[in-house]
Design a protein around this nucleic acid. Structure first.
Length: 792
RNA sequence: GCCUGGGUGGUGGAAUGGUAUACACGAUCGACUUAAAAUCGAUUGUCGCAAGGCAUGCGGGUUCGACUCCCGCCCCAGGCACCA
């Protein structure tokens, strides 16, 4: 069998494609655009492994497929180059993160080029480039100008190892998303973007998206809408507002409980209890969120404040407690304690001799959390929970002491970071300390270079003399810049807009091009960004649409999302530190780019995470050799069988492609090639059409075969093939006797059951099985099967 | 604890309610070769010489027919986790 020289072919076509600028697109000149986007990578020094390849091969497959469908495909690539990894690597190597990136990015680009993907390299962006982060700073200022960026003093997540605050989304199981260190709490003044203003539309917008259901669900749960009511309780000096989803249990309240961080704790605490309350509050400050959460199964701690509030309906005196199982950041940071109908409240009450007062008719078990008829609830007795809740909420509203409300679990996005390698937050403080937006003409606020960027709990930039001098020079004596930098997720929240006009010096993006190209038609990346990046980007885009920076009907940036599964080795995630990285390089060297691309797709369903099997690539390689050898028996003689086989193949793969089932697309291709391989001659047109269908997966060998078949132009300038229009094969009927498959026969589509049965009885393979047995019954599905039952 | 997905050969995995195990990998045997690699051919769920049984995590159910639908368990992965 004739082999083929993959190195020769790759070299040849790579050059031709580059010369013809086949992958370059001018977004302004296109009417039928298709925006195919990969989640852009951080250009790590670890290099690409076979797991990274998978996502890039997948996006390239569809980029090429849609090009063959007649679309002009924009497929850009850029680098999320700001952030901790570059900074930490630089600290370790005693170099500058900028130098580190300058070294790693070209290596990274070469590795990406090895994939043979049709990236438009004229549109590359680097988020750490001043030409880019100028506009990241501009973006922040737009939030500031609309009152959606705010500096707030509050308790924040703090990573003691990375020496920086973290957004809520970056705390995983109480630990730092990056380094795994236990996250502690710190009270700091930090910048927030008010994503909670968009909670409802971010939730509603999910319904319009063609995203995997599990990702939509993750976002839905993260946003965490809960419908309930607020209720106001009056105490001596203050009124306390609580949020509840069970306002029907209002008559069962036996206490109010405040979070230790609640601002009114000292206002309700009596002299007598001052010491114990103060001590408790101090003590809970020292506990990390994780410690507080771990308490779940133990007795809940808390102290009595000595204060009382008036129940709004019964006018009873309700004691006020402080307990750290009450979260300061959810609802109002205070809750009404209903031990009879809430498990956590029950547990707390039990440990502190607080009475339990059932108000919903129930089984004897306490706590009972279900719905039911109300008891001990005055005029509401006898009503069902839902009815009662509605009525009570309305009555409270009428009296101005409560009412229906919606609460979200989502919290505002903390964007300040006490690290060096990011975009400086473009805020300048006057001598009194009031924040002002940096003037547009001063953007970008460049990162100072005269600093040692060892993290020290405070932003390293604050140590820059030049940075201090710059502020005074631009704004006057006593003025100073904000010294924190922006979370890198701000950089990546808008990069997909920049790809359309990456070199525009005058504005961050071109609204006209955005109206033309957005939303992104296909977005491919890992599931790890299900909440972080994908939620932030939706928020930023919706902000830009709401305030008409972009005029577009659909306020969602990514219409269709596909999550590529991760590739591990022996059950572990690949990483340099574990030393288990499988490099694509030797595989490309030995089997060729096409073989590795095909194997990545053939491994299994694209959304599945799986373990790398180093051996299987052989199969794809053999397939390519077989495919290549078909050229030696090309014939112009028409061949009905091959045309019909092609049509069946095409119908199958067209359907499979819609569901991203590329592993079975390749299986079908293998079946078809195996069958052609066993023929003496292969019809030229059939082979041509086959080659086109294989070109998205195997661009190099397809281009070579296409040229061999006499074509002067690239295979990627042709169109996805149509069927030969062969009749959809002869109708076949499967014959089963007693549920067991015997044979398949060709018959007239409209044959009646009687005629068919008669026919069968005369055919030896069936008559033998049937013997003389009595036919009890039959099941006949026209054009499909006949099941003959002789038993039972 | 709650919410999602999953559980099919030695392995990755196929199967609009209709021949379970496609397509590959690996393995075994054979051909070619001085030999090896590559390549080609055969076999490959399991028990059985065979006929034929038995097998899609476990137990039930619906159906002429269930990997597929329903009910109850078990296990694995991911997410959330005192969210009032």
């Amino acid at each position: 069998m004739q082999s083929y020289d993959h190195k020769e072919i790759e070299k040849k076509w790579r050059k031709v494609w580059e010369e013809q600028k086949l992958d370059e697109v001018d977004p302004a000149k296109v009417e039928n655009g298709f925006y195919c986007l990969d989640m852009f990578p951080y250009p790590s020094g670890e290099g690409l492994h076979v797991g990274h390849w998978r996502g890039y091969v997948l996006s390239d497959y569809f980029a090429r497929y849609y090009r063959l469908q007649g679309k002009t495909v924009l497929h850009p690539m850029g680098f999320d180059a700001f952030g901790l990894p570059a900074e930490n690597a630089a600290i370790k190597n005693k170099s500058h993160p900028k130098e580190y990136n300058a070294k790693t990015i070209p290596v990274f680009i070469n590795q990406l080029k090895a994939i043979g993907a049709m990236y438009d390299w004229t549109k590359t962006i680097d988020t750490s480039d001043p030409g880019y982060y100028k506009w990241t700073q501009w973006l922040f200022l737009q939030f500031f100008k609309h009152g959606l960026a705010e500096k707030r003093n509050s308790w924040v997540n703090w990573c003691p190892k990375d020496q920086t605050v973290l957004a809520n989304e970056q705390v995983v199981n109480g630990c730092c998303e990056r380094c795994g260190m236990k996250v502690t709490k710190k009270q700091l003044s930090q910048w927030y973007l008010k994503i909670t203003d968009f909670a409802e539309e971010l939730l509603d917008g999910l319904e319009t998206l063609e995203w995997p259901e599990n990702v939509k669900l993750l976002q839905k749960n993260w946003i965490g809408r809960s419908d309930g009511a607020y209720v106001v309780f009056h105490a001596d000096k203050v009124s306390l507002k609580v949020f509840t989803t069970r306002v029907d249990t209002l008559f069962g309240v036996t206490s109010l409980v405040l979070a230790p961080e609640h601002p009114d704790v000292e206002n309700v605490t009596t002299k007598e209890f001052q010491n114990s309350v103060l001590q408790y509050v101090e003590q809970s400050k020292e506990r990390t969120e994780l410690d507080r959460q771990k308490n779940t199964d133990q007795t809940k701690t808390g102290v009595f404040t000595g204060g009382y509030a008036l129940h709004p309906l019964t006018h009873k005196q309700i004691p006020i407690w402080v307990a750290d199982y009450v979260l300061p950041n959810y609802g109002t940071g205070a809750l009404m304690l209903v031990p009879a109908h809430d498990e956590r409240d029950y547990e707390f009450a039990k440990g502190h001799q607080i009475p339990t007062l059932p108000v919903v008719e129930s089984a004897d078990d306490l706590p009972y959390e279900g719905d039911g008829k109300l008891v001990n609830s005055g005029i509401y007795d006898g009503l069902e929970s839902i009815e009662a809740a509605n009525k009570i909420a309305k009555d409270l509203e009428a009296r101005g002491i409560g009412g229906p409300t919606v609460n979200y679990r989502l919290r505002d996005w903390l964007v300040s970071r006490q690290r060096y390698w990011g975009a400086p937050i473009p805020i300048v403080y006057d001598p009194e300390g009031t924040p002002h937006a940096v003037k547009d003409e001063h953007l970008p606020i460049l990162l100072p270079t005269d600093v040692d960027f060892q993290p020290g709990g405070e932003s390293p930039i604050s140590r820059s003399k030049e940075f201090r001098a710059r502020a005074e020079q631009l704004y006057g004596k006593g003025w100073h810049f904000e010294t924190d930098t922006l979370d890198t997720f701000v950089d990546s929240s808008w990069y997909y807009l920049r790809f359309l006009s990456p070199d525009d010096q005058s504005r961050p993006f071109d609204p006209k091009l955005i109206a033309k190209w957005l939303p992104v038609d296909l977005y491919i990346g890992g599931i790890e960004h299900a909440i972080l990046h994908l939620l932030y980007a939706r928020f930023v885009y919706r902000f830009l649409v709401r305030h008409e920076y972009i005029k577009i009907d659909n306020p969602e940036p990514f219409q269709k999302l596909f999550n590529i599964g991760m590739v591990g080795l022996n059950g572990a995630k690949m990483s340099k530190s574990k030393g288990n990285i499988v490099s694509p390089d030797p595989l490309v060297e030995h089997y060729g780019t096409d073989a590795l691309r095909g194997y990545e797709l053939f491994l299994g369903p694209m959304e599945n995470s799986l373990d790398w099997n180093p051996r299987g690539i052989n199969g794809v390689h053999r397939f390519l050799i077989k495919l290549y050898s078909l050229t030696s028996k090309v014939s112009n003689d028409s061949n009905d069988d091959q045309e019909s086989l092609f049509d069946q193949y095409l119908t199958k793969i067209n359907a499979m492609m819609k569901d991203f089932r590329l592993n079975t697309v390749l299986s079908e291709a293998m079946i078809f090639v195996n069958s052609l391989n066993s023929s003496k001659a292969v019809n030229k047109t059939v082979l041509e059409r086959l080659v086109v269908t294989l070109s998205p997966a195997f661009p190099f060998i397809s281009e070579e075969l296409w040229a061999d078949l006499g074509h002067k132009e690239s295979v990627f300038l042709t169109h996805w093939p149509k069927s030969f229009g062969t009749a959809n094969s002869v109708p076949k009927v499967k014959i089963l006797i007693d549920q067991k498959f015997i044979d398949e026969i060709d018959i007239d589509e409209n044959m009646t059951e009687e005629k068919l049965l008669k026919l069968i009885k005369d055919m030896p393979q069936f008559s033998q099985k049937l013997g003389g047995q009595e036919i009890k019954r039959t099941i006949y599905k026209k054009g499909e099967l006949l099941n003959i039952i002789t038993r039972g």
